[in-house]
Nucleic acid binder design. Structure first.
Length: 369
DNA sequence: GTATGCTTTCGGC
DNA sequence: TTACGGCCGAAAGCATAC
């Protein structure tokens, strides 16, 4: 049987690259795209930075003030995020990429898997040529660079793309998978974050090769059946996940930072009322109803709490959202002593149609035995 | 014991 | 010196039904 040939396209420092394209004047200096929280002058976090800024130690998620201190003596561009614009750019690039694939799967705003097995007839050489043409096309039509990984499955394609950045193209053929993976640190595998990495380190597992040598049954004992099996398979480059189009989002949420930390329910609801309106507007535009309503709270110590409530019947009214959020925040405040720093609203468990107008009960007798 | 559904946390981007 | 976003989906953890 022919091997699958999977391509992962990952745009380089996406938000910052789009800002460079918008204003080429900043291209040769550090560019830091920031989410300003509005609490004070420089409060907020770094979303993305270009490679020049990264050389100075600026990283995603870092406080803006810290990034500024690292770039103290340098002429740098600090810019606010413009999600809507980035989404527009993303849609254009994804439409182009889709044209190069037998099957297509967008992941996040700046990544996509392309299953090209059929059109390259299982040939990794042809896939590499196709990938180069794709890069050229994206460069010409969108003025953007990306890094591409090619492998026999999504797992390997993803790790391959990370191997050379920015503007890279890395091919890992089936017979190269083992030697490619063996020396890499375990946290290059999707699903191995800080927690799993620490646990593995204590078990003497540092590289993917170490993981591959580890007894599979013991992995399952330690991490549970699903995760343990996944880790074992991943360590030897096995992954059967299909490339498939993703549907609509499964949840819609908004979160915001409060002007100051508080436990005052009225102050909290004053802010979340606006978030409810935004979520409600999104829901209205998508034409869906939701069964679950949740709240998110980030406390003073940056720890996160969430609460949610699921209704039997789908709702879509702003009032339901507001009322439920109020109840949930009241409950949360009773269960914790810390002040709240950030607050959020989330709806999920969507129902397509909300035509349950009357007398559902008349159906119950017929369908139940 | 297994399947299913809900709530909460984790972690990638 | 300190400094700290806004999303999303996946998985874990738990309860309940069969």
């Amino acid at each position: 049987m022919q091997p699958r040939v999977i391509i992962l396209v990952d745009f380089d420092y996406f938000f910052a690259q789009i800002e460079e394209r918008k204003n080429p004047y900043i291209k040769d200096k550090p560019v830091v795209v920031c989410v300003y929280s509005g609490r004070s002058q420089d409060s907020g976090a770094v979303s993305t930075a270009n490679y020049i800024a990264r050389k100075y130690g600026v990283k995603s998620g870092m406080p803006i003030a810290l990034a500024k201190s690292k770039l103290e003596s340098v002429d740098a561009a600090f810019l606010p995020v413009d999600y809507e614009f980035y989404e527009e750019v993303s849609e254009k690039t994804m439409t182009i990429l889709r044209g190069y694939a037998d099957r297509f799967e967008q992941v996040g705003i700046d990544e996509a898997f392309l299953d090209v097995s059929q059109r390259v007839g299982g040939s990794f050489e042809q896939a590499a040529e196709l990938a180069q043409r794709t890069k050229n096309d994206i460069q010409t039509r969108c003025e953007l660079t990306c890094s591409i990984g090619i492998g026999p499955n999504k797992l390997v394609a993803k790790i391959a793309a990370d191997a050379q950045k920015p503007d890279g193209l890395t091919v890992v053929k089936p017979d190269q998978v083992e030697s490619f993976l063996v020396p890499l640190p375990v946290d290059r595998l999707i699903g191995v974050g800080v927690k799993a990495k620490e646990k593995m380190e204590a078990m003497g597992i540092r590289t993917i090769g170490d993981l591959a040598k580890y007894d599979a049954r013991r992995l399952i004992e330690i991490f549970g059946r699903k995760l343990g099996t996944y880790f074992h398979n991943a360590s030897v480059g096995i992954d059967d996940e299909p490339v498939q189009e993703r549907g609509e989002a499964e949840s819609i949420s908004r979160i915001a930072t409060l002007k100051e930390d508080t436990r005052d329910l009225n102050a909290i609801l004053d802010r979340t009322d606006r978030l409810c309106e935004e979520v409600h507007e999104d829901v209205r535009q998508k034409g869906v109803s939701f069964k679950s309503i949740g709240i998110i709270a980030v406390l003073t110590d940056m720890s996160v709490r969430s609460r949610s409530k699921t209704y039997e019947n789908p709702a879509n009214e702003l009032e339901t959202l507001r009322r439920t959020a109020g109840e949930l925040f009241e409950k949360l405040l009773n269960e914790s002593e810390l002040k709240l720093r950030r607050v959020g609203i989330k709806v999920s468990n969507f129902a397509k149609e909300q035509k349950t107008q009357k007398r559902i009960t008349s159906f119950l007798g017929d369908s139940e035995s």
